Amino acid sequence: MLYIGNHFISAYQGKSTPCNIKSGTKTIADSAFFACGDLPNITIPKSVTSIGDEAFYSCLDLASITVDPDNPAYCSESGVLYSKEKTEIIRFPKEKAGDSFAIPTGVIKIADGAFEDC
């Protein structure tokens, strides 16, 4: 995984093990997980305050995203990544279990690519 200071830039495109972004990371770059097709899950620490566009593009095996409950900008529920206030769905993991998904009351925005390949 590539970091520049406290910015997560990129994961190895063939990454196939769970990814725990290191504590103290402030941002996740645009397309940071591009083509990490075998990546099963990602854990985001409380320090991350900005996630770039299409950060999870082509994460075809992604089953869940977990966010530290103390994160001020993001949260997760049942593996789905939301803005902290749950007004925006940022990423729905393609391999999330279940046959259906109901968009929660209060969601007013769905990020570009949030349901990619679902």
Rank of each mutant, 00 (worst) to 15 (best):
C75N: 13
G37R: 14
Y74L: 06
G98D: 03
A29M: 03
N6E: 15
D70R: 10
V48W: 00
C75I: 13
T25Y: 12
F92C: 02
E85P: 01
A111M: 10
T43M: 02
V107Y: 06
P69K: 14
M1H: 08
A29W: 03
S50A: 13
K46R: 14
K109Y: 03
K22G: 04
V107S: 04
A55W: 09
S64K: 13
A55E: 03
F33G: 05
K26W: 06
I103C: 13
F101R: 02
A114M: 14
K26L: 15
N6G: 06
D53H: 09
Y3I: 12
D117S: 12
Q13C: 07
C75G: 15
N41D: 15
K96C: 01
S76Y: 07
T49S: 12
A114L: 14
I4D: 15
S47M: 11
C36G: 05
G106C: 11
V80H: 05
F34I: 12
F115V: 13
L39W: 01
S47C: 11
T25S: 05
C118D: 07
I108Y: 01
I9Q: 00
S10E: 14
G98H: 07
K109W: 03
S47R: 00
K96I: 03
D30V: 05
H7G: 00
T87A: 12
V48D: 00
S64Y: 04
S100R: 05
T27F: 08
S78K: 12
S100D: 08
C36M: 08
D99Y: 02
D38L: 06
I28D: 01
V48R: 00
Y74D: 11
K94V: 06
D68H: 13
